[in-house]
Design a binder for these strands. Structure first.
Lengths: 345, 345
DNA sequence: TTGTACGCGTTATCAA
DNA sequence: TTGATAACGCGTACAA
């Protein structure tokens, strides 16, 4: 690797002059500037960021800890982080903990979990990252950072239990609201729901959004229209008859997988999806496009969550004394209009 | 951040001694060792890797350039890289170029593409990564590294045009072979194919694997059983009638999306998938599980590609003079047995 | 306008 | 068994 010293020697100037020119400082004659810049190109010099970082005491790097990169929401979140890093000249140090592969889906109750996270955070600290983004694989409340962390940090997708660590999350209420509003706009009044697992943040918030949308449209909430599912396709399949018999004209499924089960059963019942019964999903999983008819659903603002989380860190870096307590940033969902909902008007 | 100097002062020893102890050197009395280790814990000291890297002239970091992290194969490849890095104590500097988002699916013919890649590689070099893995978003031949790159590099998923840059790719021939062998083992002899796009590496290799499997089982290859598709669901749908009329008992679809189209048409024709006609896919996309019946398909060895690529880099780092020319490492596919193939025996 | 000299936090050499 | 001290490549006062 060619260093600043070598190009200084080649140009018969001091390393200080080269450094100044490279960093766009005004003090340098046009002549030497030209000469230096030329040899820089000629020798294909690239600055050594490691040395620079050591000197400057910051790395322009953001540590990104993801619980599992193979989970469907993670890549989009990273994509948002990337975009933001690109815009502001940061780079990403990625830590993929591979939690699902290591401990299956109950990893977060595992004894070792907290220790692993601590170790990874310290690792990132050693590498002098300027900030840390923790990306959960599913929504839940957690405390993963110690209270005396000295650099900005944030949780993406999950909810922070830590007063001074903000979180960026899906606005589930809003997501359910726009889904139901869309159904109402299409003339539906008797709208069934198949929920996710009980006590899940998603389930509760989405139910609340559903109720709010009904209320705002002066439609009475009928508790009998709520069927308890568990996110699985089977729970969609098994609850379809019940809702159909209750006379609903549309079914709001709290995820796209449940909607798949509803499709299965409606086909067996010879009901035309869209015409006889409208179906709307949640999550906008890749497979929703391939349903027949393709599924109208609510897209998660994953990219936005990543982008906002990263922007928040960078803002905190630029403005260290501007911290808010218990900050929760909710990103709005958006509707993916396809062909599983038709107008009743 | 607490440094080695501070803990030296606190222990009344020199920084050299602290450094030695921290690095497990034998020269230190048990007494001072204990004292130092204790204050290290007490002050929660973590070594500054930036300084260490500067001194050691290596970063224990591998640069990973992905063309687009939101493409389905990329996260699994990164997962494999992660596993390997974890095992050998490396970390990942991630560069997500976001090509699909920036330039749609023809990004690689874009004028700016080469420049962007060059820029990102230089960036990584500046950050003193020890090696680089380039992950393509789809399989093709490419030359992304300059010939005088001074650190080990490798291409994952795509084929390298560069003599000294190896590649790790899917063994498509083998994948098709095991799919066809599986059909033959289940008593099928008249096996139709719906191909991907013409001139694609995938298409050609998979066709060859198909032919080889037939040959090894003494079944004559009937060119009329090959229908030309283009990876799309429509091309599956549109070619189904043709193959059914030709009397095939099984259809090998060169990806899972095509298989979806075949499913659609077979349902319309009132053919029972599995019983009347067996269908087998390729890629093992997430949605294959949700087909009805769930789709038997060939899984891509994405994790293995990532792992092997990374291992190859680390080996090259440990053993710099052991380079092979034009090395192409093919990773074997594996069968995901589900319910779309039934025995004809 | 340019150069000297120091320090960032380490490791490594050599002398004590 | 320990401690000075010289690097690593860079940025920056301050002096020239």
């Amino acid at each position: 690797m060619v260093t600043i010293k070598e190009i200084a020697k080649k140009c018969n100037v001091s390393i200080a002059t080269v450094s100044n020119i490279l960093n766009g400082k005004p003090n340098a004659s046009e002549e030497t500037r030209k000469k230096v810049l030329e040899t820089v190109k000629q020798l294909n010099y690239t600055p050594n960021y490691v040395a620079k970082n050591l000197k400057m005491k910051k790395s322009k790097a953001i540590g990104v800890i993801v619980e599992d990169i193979t989970v469907f929401c993670t890549p989009e979140i990273i994509d948002g982080i990337t975009k933001c890093c690109e815009e502001f000249g940061y780079h990403i140090l990625l830590t993929n903990m591979r939690m699902y592969k290591k401990f299956s889906d109950t990893y977060y109750v595992n004894e070792d979990f907290k220790q692993i996270v601590d170790k990874e955070i310290n690792e990132l600290l050693s590498k002098q990252v300027d900030g840390i983004i923790y990306v959960t694989a599913h929504e839940r409340k957690l405390k993963c950072f110690s209270d005396n962390l000295k650099i900005p940090a944030i949780i993406a997708y999950g909810y922070s239990k830590n007063e001074f660590i903000p979180s960026v999350v899906v606005d589930d209420k809003n997501g359910a609201y726009i889904a139901i509003q869309y159904l109402i706009d299409n003339g539906h009044k008797n709208i069934g729901v198949i929920t996710g697992k009980e006590n899940s943040i998603h389930t509760n918030d989405r139910l609340e959004g559903y109720q709010k949308a009904l209320y705002d449209n002066s439609i009475c909430f009928n508790p009998e229209f709520v069927a308890k599912g568990d996110w699985s396709r089977e729970s969609g399949y098994n609850n379809t008859d019940y809702l159909v018999n209750k006379g609903v004209t549309a079914i709001f499924c709290m995820n796209d997988i449940i909607a798949g089960g509803v499709y299965d059963r409606l086909e067996q019942l010879n009901k035309s999806i869209g015409c006889d019964i409208s179906v709307i999903g949640f999550d906008n999983r890749e497979l929703a496009v391939f349903y027949h008819p393709s599924l109208t659903t609510v897209a998660l603002p994953l990219f936005e969550i990543g982008y906002t989380a990263c922007k928040n860190i960078i803002d905190a870096l630029d403005n260290p004394d501007n911290i808010q307590k218990n900050q929760i940033i909710e990103e709005k969902c958006y509707l993916m209009e396809r062909f599983s909902v038709q107008s009743k008007k």
